[in-house]
Amino acid sequence: MVVSVRDVAAAASVSVGTVSNVLNQPAKVSPATVERVMQAIDELGFVRNDAARQLRAGRSRSIGIVVPDSANPFFAAVARGAEQRADEAGMAVLLGSTDEQVAREDRYIELFREQRVNGVLITPALDDVPRLARARDAGVPVILVDREIAGSGFASVSIDDVEGGRLAAGHLLATGRRRLLFLGGPVAIAQVADRLAGARQAVAAVPGATLEVVEMPGLTVLNGRAAGHDIVARPLPERPDAIFAANDLLAVGAIQALSIMAGVRIPDDIALIGYDDIDFAASTVVPLSSIRQPAELIGYTAVDLLLKELADADGAHERNVRFQPELVVRSSTERGR
């Protein structure tokens, strides 16, 4: 038998409205009454019909997150930070992974709209403002994560990836490397393009330094391993003396191909730095130097921006937060570490 709100009200000797207040606005009800209603709920095994509540309220208690790859430890950490802030606000997180497919991204946005989420946090595959604006115009706030689109009107939380690229390449150059290779995913990805732009700036400032660009179809360990195999197949004079990988997964794959499979000495023969400083960067076979992003803080801050946007329609708060990257040096770039 399905237990209704009326059954709970009868068991607790209160009105249906009082039960509703206990479930939705308990501060309006005396503690003694709240305790009596909750006891009746426990005894009867009542489960609230959240779908019906959403229809009445126009909102659910959830937030949608759309990321390119939920298996990537960086985005997993972003989601973890978002979940922490959502939990503090009494909300839950719904996660969708797009594999950089625009059609799949659109399906998730529409699904979250149907679920009446309080808002969507998204790392978009493309800087397509009109497409994102359709969700916002339909009443679903949109917060950009790990991306800022200038002039778009969307609140955002991002990292200065151009500066991150300068830090990574600048560190390699400071160790005496001059033949740098940038190992990236598709340069159409804004973060990859920004990191490459920063690396180019650093290399341009050092006479005699060069930067080769190798573009892979994805930002995965397997792509990094394939690039590493291609590098070790080159004659020694044609190999780079340093690699800047656009993320740590590419860097880990490159280390596997270079060091484990081909016996290249890292950093003696080739120095290597990644990006993101994911949890296991420090525990790879050669501890990986990396550019650290505060992934959990990015997710936490994105939800915080959303909550402020929901509470303040006039937007009288900071709407674009940009964090600065941090260089983390380990054994893959400096001997003796």
Rank of each mutant, 00 (worst) to 15 (best):
G139H: 10
V303M: 01
F75Y: 04
G64V: 13
D50V: 14
A71K: 03
D42Y: 08
I255K: 06
V66E: 03
V34A: 01
E215K: 09
L55G: 10
R330L: 11
Q115T: 08
I255N: 06
V328L: 00
L126K: 14
N320K: 04
P68G: 09
R6L: 14
G96R: 06
L180R: 00
P237D: 10
V232Y: 09
S152C: 10
T333W: 12
Q201N: 07
S289F: 11
R113I: 12
R239A: 05
P124F: 05
V192G: 06
K28C: 08
A190M: 05
R195T: 04
P267E: 02
V192W: 05
M91L: 15
I231V: 13
K308G: 12
G228E: 04
G164Q: 11
D269P: 05
G198L: 00
D276I: 11
Y300R: 15
L288T: 06
V16F: 10
F74H: 14
S13P: 06
S62T: 01
A52G: 15
G64E: 13
L236C: 04
V140F: 05
L307I: 12
V22L: 14
R85T: 03
E88V: 09
V8Q: 01
A169L: 08
G228A: 04
V286D: 11
R322H: 11
A199Q: 09
R56I: 14
P73A: 02
S156M: 11
G45I: 02
D161A: 13
R225P: 00
I143L: 10
Q39L: 14
P26D: 00
D314T: 15
A202Q: 00
N49D: 14
R322S: 14
D50R: 15
L121P: 04
L121G: 02
V117Q: 01
Q54L: 05
D42F: 08
R177T: 07
P237G: 08
Q84G: 03
V47S: 15
A209M: 05
A193Y: 06
Q201Y: 05
A204F: 00
L307S: 03
A138L: 12
L95Q: 06
V66R: 01
R178H: 12
A302M: 06
A262M: 10
N223Y: 02
A11K: 15
M216Y: 02
V285P: 05
A150F: 09
N223L: 04
M91G: 08
L222G: 12
A246T: 11
R178L: 11
L196F: 03
N320R: 12
A51G: 15
Y300M: 05
F323N: 10
A245T: 01
A188C: 07
G218E: 08
E110I: 07
P31W: 07
A77I: 05
V67L: 02
D269T: 07
S259I: 06
G58K: 07
R239E: 06
L305R: 03
E215N: 14
A245N: 01
P240W: 04
V129T: 10
F182Q: 02
P31G: 07
V221G: 06
